[in-house]
Simulated scan of single mutants.
Amino acid sequence: MVEDVSKSCRVFCNLRRSFEYIADGVLWPAKIVVDSEIPVGAGLGSSAAVAVSASAAYACVGGLDVTPELVSNAAYESEKLVHGTPSGVDNTVSAFGGFLLYRRGEGFEAIRVGSLSDVTLLVIDTGVTRSTAKAVSLFTSRLKRLGSIGQDLLRLAESIVEEALHTLRKGDAVRLGELMDVAHGLLNAMGVSHTELERAVHIARASGALGAKLTGAGMGGSAIALVEKERAAAVAENLRRLGFQVYSGALGVQGVSVTVLE
């Protein structure tokens, strides 16, 4: 797909928004090629990752200093066009990297994490497309119908987050896996899981993963599994054999960076 967003846009209007932010409203000439292996609609933040990288490239063309703050803010403009009222989590994580804590109304906080060098993250794409807006609407409506029980579940979710923070700081991978399992069960109870997500999570756990849960909005998309590195290949192979696309991830990696090719 080729599109000249300086004249009009049909597909990449979101990236035009990012470029307008970078260029302060007056677009300068540039040719940007997007080559991404992140599946679209799988709950992996593909739109934010592309917007961050494209914004960084566009800033380079304009001779600007590429900072995580600049490209994250630019990508957020793109995300607003894609998702309406995004939290800003995807573009912030893509730009800054590492481990970040987000609480609505409080912003983002970098987390210092203990050693997790013996584990890796597998990303399991179910191949089931889903709508973030639909998943959020379902979650919100069910929460409202549950009344006081819904509020109890929200408090439980907050407790899981707090315990996960403590666990990350200690570098306790086994405990983190257990918390992932609990968090997934809670999301399933709220109706945002899917039969293929349940199958992926079950297979990952049965194959030796320390824990697994859906990621993103749910109702399809992807799951993540925390796996000891020595078992990762076997777990991934079991999942692939049953039809899932599996990607090997990493924990706490660097955010946006610029490499100048000679």
Score class of each variant (00 low, 15 high):
residue 1 M to P: 15
residue 1 M to Y: 14
residue 5 V to K: 01
residue 5 V to R: 03
residue 6 S to I: 07
residue 10 R to P: 01
residue 10 R to F: 06
residue 10 R to G: 09
residue 11 V to E: 14
residue 16 R to P: 02
residue 17 R to W: 00
residue 20 E to I: 14
residue 21 Y to K: 01
residue 23 A to T: 03
residue 23 A to I: 02
residue 24 D to V: 13
residue 28 W to L: 09
residue 29 P to C: 07
residue 29 P to F: 05
residue 33 V to Y: 08
residue 35 D to L: 15
residue 36 S to W: 05
residue 37 E to T: 11
residue 42 A to M: 05
residue 47 S to C: 06
residue 49 A to F: 05
residue 51 A to L: 03
residue 52 V to R: 09
residue 55 S to T: 10
residue 55 S to E: 01
residue 56 A to I: 00
residue 57 A to N: 04
residue 57 A to Q: 05
residue 61 V to F: 13
residue 65 D to S: 10
residue 66 V to M: 01
residue 69 E to I: 07
residue 69 E to D: 15
residue 71 V to I: 11
residue 73 N to F: 01
residue 73 N to C: 04
residue 82 V to T: 13
residue 83 H to A: 03
residue 84 G to S: 07
residue 84 G to D: 06
residue 86 P to E: 02
residue 91 N to W: 12
residue 94 S to Y: 01
residue 96 F to N: 13
residue 96 F to Y: 15
residue 97 G to Q: 06
residue 100 L to G: 05
residue 102 Y to A: 09
residue 103 R to I: 10
residue 104 R to N: 13
residue 110 A to E: 15
residue 111 I to D: 01
residue 116 L to W: 00
residue 119 V to N: 00
residue 119 V to R: 00
residue 120 T to F: 05
residue 121 L to Y: 01
residue 124 I to P: 00
residue 125 D to H: 11
residue 131 S to N: 11
residue 135 A to W: 02
residue 139 F to G: 05
residue 139 F to A: 14
residue 142 R to W: 07
residue 142 R to A: 05
residue 144 K to C: 05
residue 145 R to S: 11
residue 147 G to F: 05
residue 148 S to G: 04
residue 148 S to P: 09
residue 148 S to K: 11
residue 154 L to V: 15
residue 155 R to F: 06
residue 157 A to E: 09
residue 158 E to R: 14
residue 159 S to F: 11
residue 161 V to E: 04
residue 162 E to C: 02
residue 163 E to A: 13
residue 166 H to Q: 08
residue 167 T to E: 07
residue 167 T to H: 05
residue 171 G to Q: 01
residue 171 G to R: 00
residue 171 G to C: 03
residue 173 A to F: 00
residue 181 D to W: 07
residue 184 H to C: 13
residue 187 L to P: 04
residue 189 A to E: 06
residue 194 H to C: 00
residue 196 E to C: 01
residue 197 L to K: 02
residue 199 R to I: 01
residue 200 A to Y: 04
residue 201 V to W: 04
residue 202 H to W: 12
residue 202 H to Q: 07
residue 203 I to K: 02
residue 206 A to G: 10
residue 209 A to H: 10
residue 210 L to A: 07
residue 210 L to S: 04
residue 212 A to V: 08
residue 212 A to W: 00
residue 212 A to S: 15
residue 213 K to A: 02
residue 215 T to V: 14
residue 216 G to Y: 10
residue 218 G to V: 03
residue 221 G to S: 10
residue 228 E to N: 08
residue 228 E to Q: 08
residue 230 E to I: 12
residue 230 E to M: 11
residue 231 R to M: 05
residue 233 A to R: 15
residue 233 A to F: 14
residue 233 A to I: 12
residue 235 V to N: 04
residue 235 V to Q: 04
residue 236 A to E: 14
residue 237 E to V: 03
residue 242 L to G: 08
residue 242 L to A: 13
residue 244 F to C: 06
residue 245 Q to R: 15
residue 249 G to A: 13
residue 250 A to I: 09
residue 251 L to E: 02
residue 254 Q to I: 07
residue 257 S to F: 12
residue 258 V to F: 12
residue 259 T to R: 08
residue 262 E to G: 12
